[in-house]
Write a protein that binds this DNA or RNA. Structure first.
Length: 487
RNA sequence: GGGGUUAUCGUCUAGCGGGAAGGACGCCGGUCUCUCAAGCCGGAGAAGGGGGUUCGAAUCCCCCUGACCCUACCA
């Protein structure tokens, strides 16, 4: 019977949800869905110094926003609870003690100072730093004296060396690493009694019956260490797939340190990016569907995802391409959804001036030219302003023209005839004004634009007039006319 | 210093021994339009270097080089 696929995302709540973490979560999610398996969310919170609940919440919120849902996790439980490592401290200790009793691990009494000193010496001599295993065969007396001094030991796992550790990586292919390059016997439980990452992951992945571990390639050396632990515990290791990292245009790893909020998923939500766009961008950044599709939904991704088509080399984060995806989704997602998402960006305006349907129409005509939804705030401002301010240079260059004055006054006469609500019909009235006066093109449209919005550039003119409605159009044209020089 | 990963247009990629090296973003030009976009049409633009293997190499092998990652009682 083939194992039911079980994969996980295991972030540590020491920071906000990072772009790279989101991509790893996404790939795991896609893999789980593709194989009708289970996607697990678990918290690696053993670093009590840096872990924080607000980060946990940010990670949960971010993944939820992206619509990446987990089947088991700290918030919803599951058959292999608990899903936070801090709730399993004793369990890790028990497993570590088994290793000690089987002679595969031992107590290490070295102090941080001693360890540092050792490394300093090694650096001076050859450069290679590694734990020399001095506590591995500690004498009974020495041990007793350490205990008398109340020195609290850590637990180290014996790294058998030299030997080659190999695995077939689902993304990278064959990988071989010599155990001698792993830095010597490794700490698995810190002297504060808390398991260290490399040990806790193995125990958890075993407890949670993970079949595949898909993570960043910065874990490749960890995988070698972990493989040794699986072996010592007498268990079969899951399959591994290491995804290349994400770089910036200078080929630096994307990091909070260098890029700040630009790597924070929530920043994209706040700035008006569509989660569909981010998911689509992230998915195709290091993976290309066999079908060659560029635009696809999360659900479609679930049908097509294939680990063997994930790229081996790093991808550079390209905001331009994200913008392209984002603009596409702003334009193609259902209008009601985009309107809902636009509302927070319209919060500074008095929306009660328009009906819900009119707000939707405003969003409809504006979304054509947006790349991020936040741009709708300045773009829609003129719809809500009580009065329009026409910049001086436009007054000088545009309103000073005789034709502008004629157009505006003629338009004012025809305001009553405007079929408000009918975009094309309103445009037709403007055209009729132009026809009667023998004015066309910019000479006809720009004065109207300036009067209504204070700019010569904006959404479709017919839509503007139609949505602004009779009262606003009338008063704005009157105001503009008042600025036209009397001839 | 040691170890590992990696290398196709500026960027993301397709390709998996025989093609004029394909697509997408961006860029440039055209078209549409009252404007900015969007859309449509077109264009420029790529195999890091060196050795092999082969009738034939982007594709297989080796070396070099670059970039990146790891090298904690962080995760």
């Amino acid at each position: 019977m083939p194992d039911q696929v079980r994969v996980r995302i295991a972030p540590s709540p020491t920071g906000n949800l990072h772009l790279g973490t989101a991509r790893t979560a996404l790939y795991n999610y896609l893999y789980a869905r593709r194989h009708h398996g289970t996607f697990v969310f678990r918290l690696e919170d053993t670093d009590e110094e840096r872990s924080d609940e607000t980060f946990t919440q940010d990670i949960i919120d971010g993944l939820t926003w992206l619509d990446i849902k987990w089947d088991e996790g700290p918030d919803i439980g599951g058959p292999f609870a608990p899903y936070r490592q801090t709730e399993k401290i004793d369990h890790y200790n028990n497993v570590a003690n088994q290793l000690i009793s089987r002679g595969l691990a031992y107590l290490c009494f070295c102090s941080p100072d001693e360890l540092n000193e050792m490394r300093e010496e090694q650096k001076e001599q050859g450069g290679l730093t590694r734990y020399d295993g001095r506590c591995r065969h500690i004498s009974a007396e020495k041990r007793a004296s350490h205990e008398e001094q109340e020195r609290i030991p850590s637990i180290r796992f014996i790294v058998d060396e030299p030997r080659v550790i190999s695995w077939h990586d689902a993304i990278k292919g064959e990988i071989n690493i010599d155990s001698s390059d792993l830095g010597g016997d490794m700490v698995i439980v810190k002297s504060n009694g808390v398991a260290i990452y490399n040990f806790a992951v193995v125990v958890d992945d075993l407890d949670m019956k993970m079949t595949h571990v898909i993570r960043g390639e910065d874990h490749i050396h960890n995988t070698a260490k972990q493989l040794l632990l699986y072996e010592a515990l007498g268990k079969t290791a899951p399959e591994f797939g290491h995804v290349a990292l994400i770089f910036d245009h200078e080929r630096r790893k994307l990091s909070k340190r260098h890029h700040g909020e630009a790597v924070h998923i929530d920043k994209y939500r706040r700035d008006g990016y569509m989660p569909e766009a981010l998911v689509n961008y992230l998915a195709q950044m290091s993976w290309s569907p066999a079908e060659g599709k560029e635009i696809f939904t999360l659900a479609e991704g679930c049908e097509m995802f294939d680990l063997s088509r994930v790229s081996k080399s790093p991808a550079i984060f390209d905001i331009q391409k994200l913008h392209w995806f984002n603009g596409h989704y702003i334009r193609h997602l259902p209008l009601t959804l985009i309107t809902e998402r636009a509302k927070p960006f319209l919060a500074s305006f008095d929306l009660s001036a328009y009906s819900h349907h009119e707000i939707e129409q405003i969003v409809a005509c504006l979304r054509e030219s947006l790349t991020v939804l936040s741009e709708i705030t300045p773009a829609s401002k003129f719809f809500f302003d009580k009065a329009i301010v026409i910049p001086q240079d436009l007054q000088d260059s545009l309103l000073s023209k005789q034709s502008s004055r004629s157009v505006l006054s003629k338009l004012l006469e025809k305001t009553k005839l405007m079929p408000f609500g009918d975009h094309a019909g309103c445009k037709a009235i403007v055209d009729s004004v132009g026809k009667e006066l023998g004015v066309k093109g910019k000479d006809l449209y720009w004065p109207v634009r300036a009067a209504l919005s204070g700019a010569t550039q904006g959404p479709d003119l017919g839509s503007m007039i139609s949505l602004l409605g009779e009262a606003r159009v009338k008063s704005r044209v009157e105001s503009a006319l008042a600025l036209c020089p009397q001839l």
